[in-house]
């Protein structure tokens, strides 16, 4: 929130600075139209940038709603929750029908609301990912065990790759991760302190800047680092893969509707409108769980329980 306000402040400042220098192209007037009556298919998301998120998700909502008219669904909606707690409430109340997220928050919502993962979402074409533990190459860290007594950087509490997977890894390896308030907080020798950086980039920056001995991010993020940067860093541990994102449907949703939704999602890249909606949604496609949903979910449930037990 603070960051959002800060950004707004910066925006206004920039506008004020350069309003006389640049030809400010008039922004396109917001499109307005009659509020449709009827039932909506609501897709929910958690984001600080509501407008951006809605912009990227609305086409998907509209597309699906268009395919679900037989169910009395007349339109699609996108609702942005500021945090996970709010989404849990919304899905619990049935105010959100679909939700897309990485496994950990999806499992939390599933656990709390009974929402059901039905498909995988290949975001940016990534069907699965895992976490990597990295440090500066000259830091001398060769394994996770070398992290004892140090503070490492996780992303955020509800990050799959930035929290759930690495935490489970440490636990499974008999290490004792402990959340710390700051990077300067003392860490017991048998502890591995971790601090949430709130963002993968920040995690990487902390490690590069040397304020954190190591950090954890997903392999995709790490793979996007400059080659030279990667050469200066070293991955000393990696977790197993999990789906990149899950598609949750709320509980209580008609099974037929759920099946319809599922089938439509699976067929979206078969048509131009669906593909367009997928592109806007930064999604390559939706797929079934290769090992079957139960097995995939069972593994994720195991990891989830492990992490929950640690809290």
């Amino acid at each position: 929130m603070t960051g959002f306000i800060t950004k707004l402040f910066v925006w206004f400042t920039l506008i004020g600075l350069f309003s006389g220098c640049t030809a400010v192209s008039p922004s396109a007037p917001p499109t307005t139209g009659p509020v449709p009556n009827g039932r909506a298919l609501v897709i929910g998301d958690i984001s600080d940038e509501a407008a951006e998120t809605i912009k990227g998700t609305q086409p998907l909502a509209d597309y699906l709603a268009g395919q679900l008219s037989e169910f009395g669904i007349t339109h699609g909606e996108v609702r942005i929750a500021p945090d996970l707690e709010t989404m849990i409430q919304w899905m619990g109340r049935g105010e959100v029908d679909l939700y897309f997220d990485s496994p950990y928050p999806a499992l939390v919502i599933s656990q709390e609301t009974g929402a059901t993962p039905i498909l995988r979402r290949l975001k940016y074409g990534v069907d699965q990912y895992h976490s990597v533990f990295f440090s500066r190459a000259n830091a001398g860290v060769r394994s996770a065990a070398d992290l004892a007594g140090h503070v490492i950087a996780f992303e955020e509490p509800f990050s799959t790759s930035g929290y759930m997977l690495p935490l489970a890894y440490l636990i499974e390896n008999g290490l004792r991760p402990v959340e710390k308030e700051s990077l300067d907080t003392a860490v017991a020798p048998d502890e591995i302190g971790y601090v949430f950086s709130t963002a993968d980039n920040t995690t990487v920056q902390w490690v590069i800047s040397g304020i954190a001995l190591a950090g954890v991010t997903d392999n995709v993020t790490f793979g996007r680092l400059p080659v030279d940067t990667q050469a200066d860093l070293a991955i000393f541990a990696e977790t197993g893969n999990v789906p990149r994102q899950l598609v949750l449907v709320r509980s209580g949703l008609d099974e037929t509707l759920v099946a319809k939704i599922k089938s439509e999602l699976l067929a979206m890249n078969d048509n131009e409108a669906g593909q367009a909606a997928l592109d806007t949604f930064l999604t390559t496609e939706f797929t079934e769980f290769p090992e079957g949903p139960d097995k995939a979910l069972a593994e994720m449930q195991h990891i989830y329980q492990m992490v929950q037990a640690q809290k």
Partner: peptide, 14 residues
């Protein structure tokens, strides 16, 4: 805090 993500967002916005 070296919040690179926020700083990057700020710079991208700029």
């Amino acid at each position: 805090f070296l919040d690179a993500d926020f700083l990057q967002d700020l710079m991208q916005d700029l």
